[in-house]
Amino acid sequence: MTSPPVQLQAITPSLPTRRDKAVAPFRIMTWISKTITLLGAVLLGHACYSAQEHSALQSFKAATTTLTSTSAVASLPIDIAIETVVATLVILLGLVLGTRPLRPIQWNVWAGKIEREGEEGFLDSEGEMNRDFVGNPFSFLETRPGFVDIRKQRKEFAGWIKNSGPQ
């Protein structure tokens, strides 16, 4: 059959998508992760700057007044130390939250995940379909793309359009 493409477009609405629902949590996860990491980075930058200023001040003091001992130069004020540690932990949290989802390594668990969840289980942290995900990697043994009978497929498709068609 040779139905013009224009007509095809007219009769099909876009099918309802179930991926939209699935994507949302992933998007939110990346967003959270990125925000946390950024926050931590700002904190760390501030801590770094404070520490640097502090040591510059200390060395200036040491140069002007010879009375102070050298040990005062090395010690960091406690607030800067705390800020540094907190910033490190916050970035760490952000980075861990931003890692890609893991995949089960036992064959049966992995295969079961493919069957049970379909492609939804294999979205990466951006919510995009993972590029190397192929579904059941052995499905080609049953569909056999090299031997595809295109005429039969066309006939079936024409029949489907005629009988049910997309409502």
């Binding site: 995949r103 089960p104 390594i105």
Partner: peptide, 16 residues
């Protein structure tokens, strides 16, 4: 009897 999926192992260890 119960094989291991190599790609998954690689994906996971790379992530870590």
């Amino acid at each position: 009897i119960s094989p291991i999926v190599q790609e998954a192992v690689m994906n996971n260890s790379k992530t870590l």
